[in-house]
Simulated assay, not measured.
Amino acid sequence: MTGAYELAQVNIARMRAPLDSPVMKDFVGGLDEVNAAAEASEGFVWRLVDTEGDNATGLRFYGDEWLIVNMSVWASPEALRAYVYGSDHRPFLQRRREWFEHLAEAVTALWWVPAGTRPTVAEAEARLTILREQGPTPEAFTLKGGFAEPEARAAG
């Protein structure tokens, strides 16, 4: 890896109930801990927060008040994978159906950004739309079907 690029990721979820409901209590109650674990993970670069620096649970995606968004930037797919499937995040992942509806369309997209770039929600919406419409491409892909950094692809 050249280090000229970092890996941006977005994932969305459709809540089963409002954030202040009993259904969502454990999810909301665990956010600070799971986000702190992400920030302490090797390869973590950045995550989306709201204007107060808190979890971005008030931000919406595709204009839908029931969709919440998580965005972050990582040094590599390996770093993101280690966190997502690691012991700090896995229990959250395993309980996702308690809190969120199953969506038939893709809910997670990855793409390369120049190092130091922080993606916007609008950009993330566009990338997820690309993935949904075209499947994995260098512009939007998944952890399962990733693409090398742009410079590595050009050199290959």
Rank of each mutant, 00 (worst) to 15 (best):
T2F: 01
G3D: 07
Y5S: 09
L7P: 03
I12Q: 13
A17W: 09
P18E: 12
L19W: 06
V28A: 12
L31S: 01
A37C: 13
E39K: 06
S41I: 01
E42M: 05
G43E: 07
G43S: 06
F44T: 04
L48F: 13
E52N: 07
D54N: 09
E65M: 14
E65A: 15
E65K: 14
L67P: 14
L67G: 14
L67Q: 13
N70D: 12
S72G: 14
V73R: 05
W74S: 03
S76P: 03
P77R: 01
A79N: 07
L80G: 05
R81L: 12
R81P: 04
A82M: 06
A82G: 06
H89C: 08
H89R: 15
R90I: 08
F92M: 11
F92R: 07
Q94D: 15
R95T: 05
R95E: 15
R96D: 00
R97L: 14
F100H: 02
E101P: 00
L103E: 15
E105N: 13
A109E: 04
W112V: 00
R127V: 06
L128N: 13
Q134F: 05
G135S: 08
P136Y: 14
T137L: 08
A140M: 07
F141N: 06
T142E: 09
G145R: 10
P150N: 02
P150H: 03
A152D: 11
A155I: 00
G156Q: 09
